[in-house]
């Protein structure tokens, strides 16, 4: 079901950041699976210290079944909101030096939640990183390219790191149609132009119209991402 990876990082650390609710976790999980399939040794780190419920730690079983190493905050999905990140995270920077095939995806909390990156900034810079900024036109506070750029700069400010790519993840969840995706293509292009950063890919939350999109827009890279945070209702 999962597409081939649309994005091959050229550095061992792959940071996924963005406005909260922009789809960072779904993008992270999908990328982890795709990169694993392409032969990388993948570690997924849930660095979200702001979101109490829906998070990468929810996908722990799926990750484990696919041979992906997971590192979660000590109190993720418990009844307390203590944003404590374990010492285990340091191991990924050791791996980055030792194993040329390793990729570590850091799934970061939304907006100011990116401050958690600041604590690892020196190690991230030493290891080398790509930083994907995930944005959705259908999130009201980032509904224009300029609003999204403002959010991108805010995240760079909090993390003290620089974004390297943008990801257009414009969707409205289960009700997304092909038209919704097409109507947001300009948004992704404008954000790329305004920020001066290349578009890594356009993610699509439904597999059924991915082929049609790829045929209609051959110069674009579309990537199917499953909704891994879907719950009981």
């Amino acid at each position: 079901m999962l597409a081939k990876t649309p994005f091959i990082p050229d550095k061992p650390i792959l940071i996924v950041c963005g406005h909260f609710g922009s789809g960072k976790t779904c993008v992270s999980v999908a990328l982890a699976l795709a990169l694993k399939k392409s032969g990388k040794n993948v570690t997924l780190v849930d660095l979200d210290i702001v979101n109490p419920y829906f998070r990468a730690a929810d996908a722990a079983e799926l990750m484990k079944a696919n041979g992906i190493n997971c590192i979660n905050p000590e109190f993720a999905n418990t009844n307390v909101d203590i944003p404590s990140l374990g010492a285990e995270i340091h191991s990924v920077f050791v791996n980055a030096e030792r194993d040329p095939d390793s990729v570590t995806i850091l799934d970061v909390g939304g907006d100011s939640g990116a401050a958690a990156l600041g604590r690892y900034r020196q190690m991230i810079e030493r290891a080398g990183y790509n930083m994907l900024f995930v944005a959705s036109k259908y999130r009201p506070l980032t509904d224009t390219a300029s609003a999204a750029l403002e959010n991108l700069r805010e995240i760079e400010y909090y993390s003290r790191l620089r974004c390297t790519h943008v990801v257009n993840n414009s969707n409205i969840g289960d009700e997304t149609t092909q038209t919704y995706v097409e109507n947001a293509l300009d948004f992704g292009r404008e954000l790329s132009e305004l920020s001066g950063l290349p578009e890594a890919f356009t993610s699509v939350v439904k597999a059924d119209f991915c082929p049609a999109l790829a045929e209609k827009y051959p110069d674009k890279s579309f990537f199917f991402i499953d909704n891994t945070t879907r719950k009981l209702f």
Partner: peptide, 8 residues
């Protein structure tokens, strides 16, 4: 198309 957005 209706004018929907995705929100918490």
């Amino acid at each position: 198309m209706s004018n929907k957005v995705l929100m918490k």
